[in-house]
């Protein structure tokens, strides 16, 4: 596990030319890992038919609404 709960992580800023599970609204934003689930094949690879997709832990990351939208008070998580 590369990022244990509590780690601060930043979402990639790039716009890849293929399927990605990183929603656009999180690009470049910093959040906090709140939970780590069992590793799964990376959807970004699977969708492209990569023969041996990378297998990575599935992180739930908390982003704050105010950071993403400049308003609202609800926390936002992506897992």
């Amino acid at each position: 596990m590369k990022f244990p709960p509590g780690s601060r992580v930043r979402a990639r800023t790039t716009d890849p030319g293929h399927h990605t599970r990183l929603p656009r609204y999180l690009r470049g934003h910093t959040g906090e890992v709140v939970a780590v689930a069992t590793p799964e094949p990376l959807p970004d690879d699977v969708a492209r038919g990569v023969p041996e997709p990378r297998v990575e832990p599935v992180y739930a990351v908390r982003f704050h609404g105010a950071d993403l939208w400049g308003c609202e008070t609800g926390g936002h998580r992506h897992g």
């Binding site: 929603p23 689930a37 959807p43 926390g75 936002h76 897992g79």
Partner: peptide
């Protein structure tokens, strides 16, 4: 009341 929005994935 804090609101947590959980954005689902195919895995979770």
């Amino acid at each position: 009341t804090r609101i947590d929005v959980w954005d689902s994935t195919s895995e979770i």
